[in-house]
Design a protein around this nucleic acid. Structure first.
Lengths: 340, 340
DNA sequence: CTGTTAGCGCTTTCAG
DNA sequence: CTGAAAGCGCTAACAG
């Protein structure tokens, strides 16, 4: 039961016009008489015509498709970002091909390969957990297809990137905890291959230094930052010979699950241990006490990245664009505010 | 700087073979000598060849692309679903085009149009808030492209659907609240155009009836089910001449924000008012007391829908497939458990 | 196991 | 304002 395609030739025959006229009438309504246009669109509609994007793309050598590769689709932050991207992209009449690397560089590379075959007009990437080389994007550059990183970016790459100043944010959070009286601050963080976690740690260290607090390596806990890791970290904290008086977690999920365990163990927050997270996940306003965090504007990051990409596509040649550094916001809530 | 495409012709010339041999060597390594295959793939690689999906698709009349249209990308449930879909689809070597209707039927239709032009091999749809007709999918049927609804489905349509039994789930939740001693149960629900909310309400009503509780229209609050709506609903509840002793919200987000306001107003949960939500959002385990809810397996729903779709694609003709009804699970937590 | 050939449906010069 | 003709890159008969 192969459906017979209705093509512009069919319309042309019916209207006794040439295919080129039909093509113009459908896509480029200048330099065609109003009357003809009307006849064409009407007939197209009534014949059930649907333009074939492959044929058009093949001929035009562009796809109107933007590719997106992210580590995971099912995180609060990423779904915000994707929503922002989709909004911008669809406004500009582009389509979106999305795939997730599941935190594996290998799958990231194979997704990139698929995107290349689909001749995306541009690519938006947030890197996988274990990505240590970005050679799998070289082919895009070779063909002149812009690639932009966002959030999880690659350091010193020639690709433009959209991100926040994680160093400064890490600094701000730590300094805030210190001014609340914390002296022994645990830092829960993730894979140090990734700029986002590495920079936050740097900021943490610098703040300690500026406030004359000795950096203690044993207070840095590196894990996967998932809910389960937060629970595990709570155990580690409880077993410490001397309890810390503050925790700065590199994401909210982990902070929240850690807090829950500590609370069950009669640790008072913020009095015994003050807490701060990162991302402004909806969870932060549910947990009691509400969690101090960094408002990381995912939706906006998506929009900004998409806009930048489309500018590059429009410019037709890859700009050595500067990185875009987005604003963030330290949101101070009860989990870190101590009465003096 | 137009990059010159490397085509199979270029490879053919270099290797003194025919284009068809190259094509076969690259895609269909049967009936080609091992040696030739190796030469072909090596040369392709070294010349920086990337197969052109448009050309291939145009010729083959299939795209290896699955389209997905959902109301919003940025919800915990949807991001789970999408992740499940992506997983299955990419396992089967399909690509994913995604767009969001932003709860508007108009945008849903225009997305469908774009998907049609891109000749997706199949379409997965969760309907927008105000979708009251699904004629915009007719063209897919006409061309023999399978369309499957999930979660927010259209009643009595000829399209197969993947969903849970919302009626029964609504019934179970309500019955549970009743057995905990609730007699005046508020139901927070959404647009009654949508099967998911309509059916949950039906289940609620039936449970009341079965337990000889009079249905009271004033206890049904219809709103957008967002966090803000939960806050608003809490206000309405507090202003009721007689306080209810139970709340069944059709989603967790709304339940949680409603609970928060009530708690601030010194309502004890579950003793004054018992609570139940819907979806098993991560929030449910953070709010205190933890929220009783229906575990709605988004990831699994995505996987199942994708598999069903790919089966239909594979079968090459649209099956009058039966709907798939997924299991759900009533998760009873403290918010609804009263000590006797 | 390999080659020849035709054509998928569209756009875009170029020429009226 | 409209038409003729060529070709984007690939695959699938068909023929050896």
């Amino acid at each position: 039961m192969h459906h017979k395609e209705v093509t512009i030739y069919d319309i042309a025959r019916k209207l006794d016009l040439s295919p080129s006229t039909i093509s113009r009438g459908l896509k480029n309504p200048t330099s065609i008489s109003k009357v003809t246009i009307k006849r064409i669109t009407d007939t197209a509609h009534e014949m059930g015509y649907s333009s074939n994007a492959f044929a058009s793309n093949l001929r035009k050598k562009r796809s109107n498709i933007i590719g997106v590769i992210v580590p995971r689709l099912n995180s609060a932050f990423m779904s915000q970002t994707i929503a922002g991207i989709e909004k911008e992209v669809s406004n500009a009449n582009y389509n979106l091909i999305i795939s997730q690397s599941l935190e594996s560089m290998k799958k990231e590379a194979s997704s990139a390969f698929a995107m290349l075959s689909n001749r995306v007009d541009g690519l938006l990437v947030s890197l996988a957990y274990d990505t240590e080389s970005i050679d799998h994007f070289n082919n895009f550059i070779k063909r002149g297809t812009p690639v932009i990183f966002f959030d999880r970016v690659f350091e010193n790459s020639k690709y433009p990137a959209v991100h926040i100043n994680n160093y400064k944010a890490g600094y701000d959070v730590t300094a805030h905890l210190i001014t609340q009286g914390c002296k022994r601050i645990v830092h829960l963080t993730g894979n140090q291959l990734q700029n986002v976690y590495k920079d936050r740690l740097k900021g943490y260290k610098q703040a300690l230094m500026d406030y004359n607090i000795m950096f203690d390596e044993r207070l840095v806990i590196v894990n996967g930052l998932a809910a389960a890791d937060g629970i595990e970290a709570a155990g580690q904290i409880l077993r410490m010979p001397q309890l810390p008086d503050g925790v700065f977690a590199a994401n909210d999920q982990c902070a929240v699950s850690c807090m829950q365990v500590l609370k069950k163990n009669r640790i008072r927050i913020p009095d015994d241990i003050a807490f701060a997270g990162f991302n402004n996940d909806p969870l932060t306003c549910i947990i009691e006490p509400n969690l101090t965090t960094i408002n990381y504007k995912g939706y906006e990051m998506g929009q900004v990245s998409a806009k930048l990409l489309m500018n590059q596509i429009y410019a037709k040649n890859i700009q050595i664009a500067d990185d875009i550094v987005l604003e963030y916001e330290l949101i101070i809530r009860e989990s870190s505010v101590r009465k003096r």
